[in-house]
Amino acid sequence: MKVPLFGPDNDPGSGFTDLLRSVGLDPFSTVSGVPGVSGAPHGTTVLALRCLDGVVMAGDRRATMGHRISNREMEKVVPADRYSGVAISGTAGVAMEMIKLFQLQLEHYEKLDGRAISLEGKANQLSQMVKANLGAAMQGLAVVPIFAGYDPLRRTGRLWDFDVTGGRYEEREFVATGSGAGPAATVLKVGYRPNLGRDDAVTLACRALFEAADIDAATGGPDVLRGIYPVVAIIDSEGWRRIDDEALRTLFEQISDEHRASREVPS
């Protein structure tokens, strides 16, 4: 694949998707006339919440195909660039491709223009990608992301959720999507306080995932047997930082202990 030396009249600008289209590699081209696709792996519960000076994002690691677990280690929450992250629920294949494209788009723009896109601009870019995927979504290959990050202009964490048409909604507190979104959002709603400290926000995110996995079969809980834990990350003025598995193991043990304790019948 060769990219030509563009002149002023046919230059595709700083957009990576536009560039791909101009060389005949449309990432969102859909096969027309194909009936709904079923049986593709799906990803599940992802969430984000604001905390003091930043945001916390979290997501389980399970991908399912019908009643079968197709992957136990999928990472559905990934850094989009240094100051933002994206979490995806929906058809795994399409979602992973969209994440890759989105990451590339941010980096491509940054390199061509010499500065990063604003946080709101990034959310808008993602919304356009979701919208471009509408054709595939109608065939059953929907992708619904969450976008969150630290806004250096406003010095605060911000987060957005999306619908399948590309609708973009900024949330003030928290958001959860995927099949386990119901229980996860309930836990977040009960536990959320404005200006939650980072550690408290991480704990709350883990509790929400724990409860989602407890009820929703398509959401994976902490896998102690294999040492696989959800992806939990903080994004603040220092950028994206993933919480390491050792810390998560301790945290989930603590949550399990609380559960056990609450079940004991007082004698």
């Binding site: 694949m1 990576f16 491509h108 390199k111 061509l112």
Partner: peptide
């Protein structure tokens, strides 16, 4: 710009 574009498309 030609270089950035080629590199990104190739990496993609």
């Amino acid at each position: 710009r030609f270089g950035v574009r080629n590199a990104d498309v190739k990496g993609y």
